[in-house]
Each structure stands twice: as C-alpha cells, then as structure tokens.
Design a protein around this nucleic acid. Structure first.
Lengths: 225, 225
DNA sequence: CGAATTATAAAAAAATTATTAACAAAAAAT
DNA sequence: ATTTTTTGTTAATAATTTTTTTATAATTCG
C-alpha cells in the first residue's frame, strides 16, 4: 500500500532553525519545502497544496500571526506555530486565530514530530488506506479508479465513500441503513443497484461475487484475502 | 539554500564571443557546452537536457530565430537571445517567438550573469514546475503559452494560476471553491466556462478530456504522467 | 415448494457538468 | 479619447452522469 508522504512547509526567517527542522522532517520521511518569510510562504502556498505548515511567529516583515490572519480564509492547511519561549498571549492569540497547535522554542525534535503526527492523524491524512490491491484488482481511492486486469473504471463519489469505509473495515458487515447514512440516501432499493454496479467493477465474476458479498438479512461485507 | 549547477548551451558562430561567454560562465560555476551553429545546437539538444540556452541571433546558416521557430514545440529549456546592437525589431520578434530574455551585444559579463540567474531562479529553483511536457503538449508557465501539436495558445493569468496549482499538485482534486479562492472568483458557473476554455487548449480531444478531468461532485484534477 | 430477500436490467427522472453565444466591463492598443 | 481585444459573467440549452423506479428474475432458506 502506498504511504502518503505529507508535504510540509517550514516558515522561519532563521536559517539555522529552518534547516534543522527541515533535516528532522526529512529524516522522518516528510517532504519539505521551506520559506524564509511570510511573504515567501504566501508565494509558495499559491502553488503547492501543503498538508501542514510549521510557522515561526516572530519574523521580520510580516509575522506568523499576520500571515494566518491574512490567509485563513484561503488556507485549509493545518498550522503549527513556533513561539518564542514565554509568550503565552501570542500563543493564545495564535490558537484563537486558527493555528492548530503550537510549540515553544526551543523544542525537542521528537516533540515536533509527535505533534506533526498528531495533527496529520487528526486530519485523517494518513491512517486510512487509499490504495489496495488483491489478485488482479487494484482500487485507488485517490485517483477514484479501479483497475481490473486490463480494464479501468472510474468510481464516483458514492462508490468511493462505500469502498473507503469497507476497505478500512474489511470483514465488517454494513447494513443498507449504514450505507444509506454514509452516502445520504434512504432508498434501500437504490443501494442494491449501487452494489450491483460496484460489483461489475471490482469482481472478476460479478454474478458470483467473491469480495463484495451479501450477508442475507444483514447487509454487505468486503472480503479481501 | 543549495546552489544548482545549471548546464548552459552557448550557441554562437563567433569563436571569440563563444569562448568569452564560456569563460564567464565557468567562472560563475556553470557547466557549459558550446555550439557553433544552429545545426550544431540541434544535435546537442537531442543529447543533453540543458537548463538554459544562450543563443546568438545572427549566424550563418540557420539564424537564432529560425532555430527557435523550428524547435519551440519541443524545447522546454529557456532561451536568452544575444542580439546585435540596435535591432529592436528582432528582439521583439525573439520574445514573441518564445525566447525568455534577450541581451544586446556588446554586454557586460555581469549583466549576462544577472539575467541567467534571474531565469534560472524563475524556472528550476523552488522545486516548482514551470514548464511541463506530456505527449504532444507543452505547457510553459513562464511564457504563458501552450503548445499542442502545431498550434499554440496564450494562457491568461487566471488560466495560469489554475495550471500552476494543478501542475504542482498533479493527481490532486480541486473543488470549484478551491479554484475560486485561487483566482478570486466566486461564481461557480464561471469556473465551468474557464475549464472548458482551458480544455480547448490542453486537450487533444476537449470533449473527451484525458488530462484535465472532472471528478463529479468534487471538482477537477490534472492527470499527467 | 413458497415466501422473503436480493439481483439485474432497462427506462425515467434528477442532478450535475459542458457548451455556446451574447453581453458587459476591463484592459490594451491605436 | 476611441477603438479593439480580452476576459469574466450570465443564461439558455445540451450532454452526461447518477439516482430512482419499475418490472422481472434469481437466490436463499425454513
């Protein structure tokens, strides 16, 4: 399974800290881009969709707090603030304004990594399977595609939601009601049809489903290997 | 930040200028290859992927302008034109045709280096992609041009912003809202129209988009490889 | 077997996206 | 200052995709 490598933007005017943090992060298998000012960061986020921003609060020019204020409408990316020691008011303001966490300098590398992992987990980026393969079938939720032998099929949002849930809970049976809640749909017969269509895409022999099976009277289950 | 060692091709029929430029460049830590004619340059670019081409406009045989015309669909590399003094029409034509900058002869070595650095910064640096090529399509954000087979299209600022983002996040789906934030535009229907227009430029068959695809209910994604 | 449940196909309906053309506003050119 | 070109907006219509319905078949299990 493909691990998603989070892309992190490190914003700090201090060369030493910037490269140190970059080094830590790279050692921990993150993809890192740096910016040496808020202005620089603004340019970079225009172009790259980061998974996390680590932001120094005190910088010449625009401060970290100003950066957040100016961009919070546009940014969905979580932010970890680096604050100077003993500046509780700024920390609080940062969190109020939209930062997701803060870390007072100086900090232990391990602590930084911990907080990053924590946030990444929260944003659900990492703990979910997005690509799985069994036999000759590959389901790629990121691409919203299924590859079966030499065929490829698009999967729509409804199908994606169902597969997402089932892939991350293999062997668990979902009632039609469960599925209906998931995809915001309360017509039970419609779910039959959706399952039928899904089977055409993921089963070698859709009439004799091996993976997406029916549990009569209960619901459906994804059964992989 | 690490300095990138750029590989530069110098194309000039004049031995003196060629070796002089080469000397300057080597002193400034560039890697240099020379060609004494457009024909020679054509052979060299077949073999080596340069980071920059410095091209004399006036040469016996094929001229610099002809070289660009003949190769612009294929070449990703930025070009600096060397023009004879006081030939503004040729300069303008050069820029129109696809050069990235020009420098009138005679020039100060320092000025050449400055322009080189400027271009290198714009292109290679930043780990941002500015020029990409796939199949018969080339997108050049610096020149704001798209080359498709024998056609070429200008891209405006809006289109550029969208492509910039997507090129640097290939495979990532952007909602209309994302795109709207990016280009400061909140009319969702307008985005449809903009996408349609973009597809006319970058798709071989705009009615059946292969690259700029719709993820129904979610948004759009650029799919290249 | 027979009743209940599930499967399937095809058609209809609904929702979303695509396309075109016409227009207005802004920008660029003359 | 006027004209031309470009760009975003809107609206009307078409095309596509997805959901729902309907009708019928197939399956399961007491």
């Amino acid at each position: 399974m493909d691990k998603i490598i989070a892309h992190i933007l490190v914003v700090d005017d201090d060369d030493g800290i910037r490269s140190l943090v970059k080094k830590y992060l790279i050692e921990n298998d993150y993809l890192v881009t740096t910016a040496d000012s808020a202005e620089d960061a603004v340019e970079k986020i225009k172009i790259i969709q980061f998974d996390l921003i680590i932001l120094d609060i005190m910088m010449p020019g625009k401060s970290g707090l100003e950066f957040i204020k100016d961009n919070k409408k546009k940014i969905i990316t979580p932010i970890i603030l680096l604050t100077a020691k003993g500046e509780p008011s700024e920390r609080i303001e940062g969190l109020e304004i939209g930062a997701d966490d803060y870390l007072p300098k100086p900090f232990e590398p391990k602590e930084l990594i911990l907080r990053i992992e924590n946030i990444i987990k929260k944003t659900k980026l990492n703990d979910q399977k997005r690509v799985i393969q069994f036999q000759n079938i590959k389901i790629d939720l990121n691409k919203q595609m299924i590859f079966k032998n030499d065929n490829e099929y698009k999967i729509n949002n409804t199908e994606k939601k169902i597969l997402e849930k089932m892939i991350n809970n293999p062997g668990k049976t979902f009632s039609r009601e469960d599925i209906g809640l998931l995809i915001e749909l309360d017509k039970e017969r419609s779910i039959d049809v959706i399952i039928t269509r899904l089977r055409k895409k993921i089963e070698m022999d859709p009439k004799r489903p091996k993976f997406l099976q029916t549990i009569r009277g209960t619901g459906y289950v994804l059964w992989i290997e």
